Simulated scan of single mutants.
Amino acid sequence: MTEPVDELIDDLIGDLPAIDHADRARRICDAADGTTLYTDLTDVRWLTGFNGSNGWAIARCDELIVGTDGRYGDKARAETAGTGATVIVEQQAAKLHQRLVETLGDQPIGLDASSVPHATWQRLAADVDLVDRPSPVKLARRTKDPAEVARIDAAARIADAALADVEANLCGMTELDVRAELEHSMIRLGADDRSYDTIVASGPDHGARPHHGASRRTIIEGDTVIIDVGALVDGYHSDMTRSWVMGEATAEQREIYALVVAAQQAGLDATHPGARASDIDAACREVFDDAGYLDWYIHGTGHGVGLDIHETPFHSPVSTDSILADYVVTVEPGLYRGGFGGFRIEDLLLVTTPNTPTDPGYRVLTHSPKRELN
């Protein structure tokens, strides 16, 4: 890095637009079918702005209520200011539960059963008339507004810059050293944190594990290397994977890498508003199947990204999801085999409405080069 770090941070993040939680709360409350309880903390954050490790939100036609414990009282009031939310704070968990029950009353309460542990549902159902209802917030979260896209875009730029700092010196470093350098660089460049445990998978064994993590193994000549890295900016994630061969690649490594590049391009070409997530997955699999390598492909092709690193939609053969404009999704095919290693290439896309016949229907948010093998 030659620029001062403060200038780099300004270039990468800039002035992020404010998130209008008041508008979100209005839209969700106006559309509420009776009373809905949100216990998923990511849903609570998206709806109200409150970001804590314990809390809930209640939305009904004319009211938004947030509950939390004493650790977060001031934080909850500050973060929900402007939404019109009433904030309930209790020191004891039993008392907070009692206040929740009292606030909900005896009418039917909508709660997405998939968002709560079974034990939590049972405990609430003993005191409240719960009705399993899909979360309107989870559905709304799939579509990203400009303020959300700005944060994801900034996170992607930070990860790009961090990888550019590190990739030239991979050979001779341990996987853990590479991970530490990447994560330290992202923080210096303005990220709040990493998006997830950065994956650095090298060599014939570790490289064959899509979610290997990182170890004290030293990266050496001849290794395949996979790095899966993302940054976190104001709660929003980025996600990207690139792959390399250290030194001169073998004919087999060139063949497998070229297949992954071709499969990823096929997945990108299949991504547009109205596409089925299963068709994006199928486009990648077809490339591998035609080449006789389908059994080397051992995971899905992508997923949504936002306040959670893995969100709906999910690109897989059994997915029933569709892709709409303003979704942010990954396309990330890969091939892996013990004794060989592996390759994965992943980009983060903002799905867009095409304006011309040649418009692909997406904008790529991750810009690290997909290196040609030596």
Rank of each mutant, 00 (worst) to 15 (best):
D23A: 08
A25Y: 02
D30N: 12
T39M: 15
R45G: 02
W46I: 03
L47T: 07
F50Q: 11
N51P: 01
R60K: 08
D62P: 05
L64D: 11
I65T: 10
G67Q: 10
T68Y: 08
D74T: 13
T80K: 07
G82A: 01
E90S: 08
Q98I: 06
L100W: 10
L104V: 11
G105V: 09
I109P: 01
L111F: 06
A113D: 11
V116F: 14
P117Y: 07
P117D: 08
R123M: 14
L124C: 01
D132V: 04
V137R: 02
K138N: 12
K138R: 15
T143Y: 09
A154M: 05
A155D: 01
R157C: 07
A161Q: 14
L163G: 00
E167H: 12
E175A: 03
D177V: 04
I187A: 13
L189C: 06
V200K: 09
G207W: 10
A208S: 09
P210A: 06
T218N: 00
E221T: 13
E221C: 03
E221H: 08
G235H: 13
Y236G: 05
W244F: 11
E248A: 15
E248K: 10
A249W: 07
A251F: 15
Q253I: 06
L259Q: 01
Q265Y: 04
I280M: 01
R285I: 05
L294F: 15
H303E: 00
H310L: 15
L324N: 14
Y327S: 10
V328Q: 04
T330R: 00
V331Y: 00
V331T: 09
G341A: 05
G342F: 12
D347S: 09
L349Q: 02
T353C: 14
N355V: 13
T358V: 11
Y362T: 03
Y362N: 06
V364A: 12
R371C: 09
L373R: 02
N374F: 08
